[in-house]
Each structure stands twice: as structure tokens, then as C-alpha cells.
Simulated scan of single mutants.
Amino acid sequence: MNKNIDNLYKIAKKEERLIIGLMSGTSMDGLDVALCKFRGSGGETEVEVVAFETVSFEDAIKDEIRKIFAKTTIDFQQLCVLNPWIGNLHGQIVNDCLKKWQILSEKVDLIASHGQTVFHAPKILHKLEKFPNATLQIGDGDHIAVKTGIITFSDFRQKHCAAGGEGAPLAVYGDYLIFSKKGENRILLNMGGIANFTYLAGNLDANEVFATDTGPGNTIIDAYVKKHFGLAYDEDAKIASQGKINQELLKALKRDVFFGKPFPKTTGPELFNLEYLINAQDQSHTTELSHEAILATLCRFSAETIAEAIGFLKRESFSIYGSGGGVHNPLIMNYLRELLPNFIFKKTDELGISGDAKEAVLFATLANEAVAGGETNFGSRKGVPSVSMGKISFPE
């Protein structure tokens, strides 16, 4: 037997596995690194976050990614060279974190790397009849494995697309395995660049799990603040809180056909970007609005589309556990509480895992399931194929 296969077999048989989850979202703020200890798999999965850190990206790194990010026309050479460059960058960040945490790489069983999304193109967006759902994440897993000396799982979203999904949201799988609770209907709401949620039924039936994107979370807000104020984000919604919602602009923002498409569905900054905002302003004759009014309206736009998507479930009560940058935006959170007055809002921190670490932990969970589980049946519904995800890269 090849020694790499033999090593992977031994990892799968272990009672405990130490797995590093890596996540870099569409905001490109940095790389989330979560060192997780796993026991069991499937419905018996137990996870403990041993260490966690978000390593911020310098502007020079973000600038290189932005040259191809969410663009239909790019320099193909830039895409080609970025793939290994990002892989090496992520690998070095892992090495640096392990050194800081005083943990030898030999003690880590696996790395689960989401990669950096550069383009998301489900059929609902590309509208090209003969082509399937598609998505692209870069940060080559082989480079991470060689750089760290650790077996690496990567490129998770391709299997989801191959099995008929849209490549997102993938949080549904880890959400079910880690966060389901008998007797409590839960929504795990993630408000990153794009907002999405997972519904977990209190009867623990995997066939009832439901997940969908709802529309923008912070992506247009962050892009607007960067362009007009030179800031990465509107901290505590200080700027937006000074503005007044413009109803005409809000109506125009919500007019896109995406919001009329059936659930589940996915989207990305390929649609929801500054150009989208400019078009909505032109349609609503609101090009002279103040920055504060525009940001207030964008916050309301995110909140209303999230609330309306949750309303689609037609359930009377949930506990909603939030994560992602949006939970730190008090204006969005206040709007959500107003729009969903019968729901209890909490943070995933109350479930034992930091909301900031959640996405990285969920990809570590996918890798754990790939080696030690894979028997959970999510049924045959659109958007949640019962598949094992992640391509394997050996360090040797």
C-alpha cells in the first residue's frame, strides 16, 4: 500500500483527529485558521476548537486578488499564477500559526482548506443553458500540503456542483452535524459578504435540513465604504446610523429577478456589487443621496432580504444563531429584530464555537466527515446532495 494511503487510513481509524480548517471569504479580510479536535463522525461528531486566529491580509495581497475577483474578463496569467501563490501563502500562514501555538506539524492530521473564491457562477447567474453550475476557488491544495507537510483536503465545492448543487452554501453539512439539537428548531444565519442560513429541525431529521443564500450581507456595504471612505468596513455602523433609509432606492435594490427565484439558490458579488447599486440609483433617481443615506438603505436591504427568506420557511418559532461580520453591525441586527419580532436572536458563540471561527470549523468538519464518516443521508432534495467533499493532496 502506498504510504500516503496507509497514513490516511490510520488517521480515519483514530479515536481523535486534529484538523486545521482554513477559510477566506469574499470580503478577503484575511485567513481564518481554526485548529480543531474531532471525535466521532456523523451525528456523533464532537468538536473542540483548540486554537483560532484570523490572520489579516495586507492590502498588497487583496489588490492581487481583486485583479481577477468576480470579473468576467481577466488576465488569465494572473489567475494561473495566483493559484499556487495563494496556496503557498495559506501554507505559510498555517506554519506560522503552529509555531505561535507551539504545536508540531506532525501532530496535525489534516488541513481542510476552503480556498479563495474568485468567481461564483450558478446557472441562476450565468444563464447559459448548456453549461452547468460552476464556482472557482483558488489556493492549490498540493502547494499547501507540500508547504506544511500535512495532508490537505481542498476544493470542496466542485463535488457539490457535480452532484447537482450550486456549490453553496456548504455550511449546511457542518451545521447539521455540530449544531443540531433535539427539541429546538434552529437557524444558523451567516452574514458574510453574502448572507445565507441553514434550517435545523428539532426532530434531528437530516431530510428536513434546508440551506440557501438570501442575497447580500456586507459585500456592497464594504465595497462602498472602501471606495468613498477608504475604510475596510463601517465599524459599528457609525456612518450608516447617521443616515435615513430611502424607500425608492430600497425598492429598486430589491427588484432584481434573483429575489423572485425559488429557494434554495446561491449568489455572489458577481451580482451584488457597486455596479448593482449604481444601477438601482439610476432606476430610482437617487444618485444625489448622501453617503449616510445610501449605507443606511444598504443595511436595510440586507436585513429585509434575509428576513423575507427566513419567512419562506413558514415556521412559527426558531432560535436564530448569527455569525459573520454582519453580527457586528448593530443597524442590521436591529432591523432584523424589528422584522422578525417572534424570533430569539443569539450568537453561535453561545453554542460553544465563536462566530468568527465557525466557517473554518465547518470546513474542518467536512474533512473529518470525508475520512471518518460520510453516512449521513440528507435525502435527494435540490441543494443538499449527500456526498463526500474535498480533494486530497499528499505532502509527498
Results as ranks from 00 to 15, higher is better:
F76K: 04
L79N: 10
W85K: 14
I86M: 15
L89D: 00
L89E: 00
G91Y: 01
Q92P: 04
N95R: 14
C97R: 05
L98G: 02
W101N: 14
Q102L: 07
Q102F: 08
Q102Y: 04
Q102H: 09
L104V: 10
L104N: 10
S105I: 03
E106M: 11
V108I: 13
V108D: 07
D109T: 14
I111S: 02
I111Y: 14
A112G: 11
S113D: 00
H114D: 03
G115D: 00
Q116A: 13
Q116S: 12
Q116W: 03
H120V: 11
A121P: 08
P122F: 14
L125H: 14
H126W: 05
L128K: 15
K130W: 07
F131R: 04
F131H: 08
P132A: 15
P132Q: 11
N133R: 06
N133L: 00
I138Q: 10
I138F: 03
G139I: 03
G139C: 07
D140G: 09
T148W: 01
I150L: 11
I151Y: 13
T152H: 08
D155T: 04
F156N: 04
R157M: 04
R157N: 08
R157G: 01
H160F: 00
C161N: 11
A162E: 07
G165I: 01
G165A: 03
G167N: 05
G167E: 02
P169A: 09
L170F: 01
A171V: 02
V172F: 15
G174E: 02
G174C: 01
D175V: 02
D175H: 03
Y176Q: 06
I178Q: 05
K182N: 09
N185A: 07
R186W: 06
I187A: 03
L189E: 01
N190L: 04
N190K: 09
